[in-house]
């Protein structure tokens, strides 16, 4: 039932690779192909997989130490002399701690700074709430000029990182820590700002990003048996939102469920709700963390505890179907 562009056997035994590996591998590729690309680290270089770039291109790697605000503005300075700097650290630090630097120096002046924002979501696991970025999409999405991408797997993170250099202006690429299913391939089409329909359907639209795209596909498979036909959209670009794809699907199915590994407040769900409420209001459910901080635990247990599963999607789908009638 999936499109021909996705990986084979994703329901049986998908490959499992952390999305951050896509970031690290893409940086190495960029190092080889674009002499202007420089990478900045703040003492989390290997965790972000930026050590691969640092090893191969030491003259273009800038270690800033544990100083994220300094790093964000050093990146701004490097962009002012024609470099394409990649700020690399956890989301809570690059989007959270350095938000003023991101806002007033980088986004306001539309500087060509790229942000590799790691440890997104609850699946960060045992490190707990301090390191689980659950507010970063809200904090970045609210800033003018900023492009915000939440890729679904290794390949998409790779492509998003490469694509970010084609955009003149600041870009956030948000990825996670743990291994997640690889559902796309090298050849799956990817375009910043273009949401991809991974499964066509007529009854309910499910718009997801990050690892929740996989959960949405599982939900679709299970609900097909019950005669509910889901349309599953991978909305990897939160900003700018692909309004055409979203409204076309909402007009067809007349109800929408969103799913993301982020607070319900301010993320993908909010973006979709802001858009549809003005242009084509339909019954909606937003799946995400329900206004609470994360905690320590094994990633899979946390995903269940916080309701970020296909079961929650199935429940929400049934809710909106009822509301539609």
């Amino acid at each position: 039932m999936t499109t021909k562009n996705l990986a084979k056997d994703i329901y049986e035994k998908p490959d499992q690779i952390p999305t951050r590996h896509g970031y690290g591998d893409a940086l190495v590729h960029l190092g080889k192909t674009n002499k202007d690309v420089v990478v900045l680290g703040a003492d989390l270089t290997s965790s972000l997989r930026a050590h691969l770039f640092a090893k191969e291109f030491p003259e273009r790697f800038v270690e800033v130490g544990i100083a994220e605000q300094d790093m964000m503005n050093i990146a701004a300075g490097l962009s002012l002399v024609g470099k394409i700097p990649f700020v690399s650290t956890y989301g809570v630090f690059c989007i959270g701690r350095a938000w003023d630097q991101l806002r007033t120096t980088v986004a306001y002046a539309n500087l060509n700074v790229k942000i590799g924002s790691g440890h997104g979501g609850i699946s960060v696991g045992p490190d707990g709430a301090t390191h689980q970025a659950l507010e970063d999409v809200a904090l970045s999405r609210v800033l003018p000029n900023l492009t915000v991408i939440v890729p679904t797997d290794y390949h998409e993170t790779y492509k998003a990182t490469i694509s970010s250099t084609k955009i003149q202006g600041p870009v956030v690429v948000r990825f996670g820590r743990e291994k997640v299913p690889v559902i796309t391939t090298k050849n799956t089409p990817f375009k910043v700002g273009k949401a991809d329909i991974y499964k066509k359907g007529t009854d309910v639209t499910v718009i997801a990003c990050g690892v929740m795209v996989y959960e949405a596909l599982i939900a679709a498979k299970m609900l097909a048996k019950k005669g509910i036909d889901l349309e599953v959209i991978n909305c990897h670009t939160i900003k700018p939102l692909d309004m055409d794809t979203i409204i076309a699907s909402a007009k067809k199915t007349k109800c929408v469920v969103t799913a993301e590994e982020h607070q319900q407040i301010g993320g993908l769900g909010s973006a979709v709700a802001e858009f549809l409420s003005k242009n084509y209001p339909v019954p909606m459910r937003i799946i995400g963390v329900n206004d609470r901080f994360g905690e320590s635990g094994p990633p899979e247990d946390l995903m269940k505890e916080f309701g970020l599963t296909h079961e929650t999607i199935i429940k929400s789908v049934q809710d909106v179907v009822k509301m539609k009638k």
Binding site: V38, E59, R60, V62, Q69, D70, M72, N73, I74, A75, A76, G77, L78, S79, L80, V81, G82, K83, P85, D100, Q101, T104, T105
Partner: peptide, 16 residues
């Protein structure tokens, strides 16, 4: 508080 970091980035870029 942000300007000196920006200046560091600009100066570092010139050095590179």
């Amino acid at each position: 508080g942000q300007g000196l970091s920006i200046a560091v980035g600009v100066a570092k870029g010139f050095k590179m």
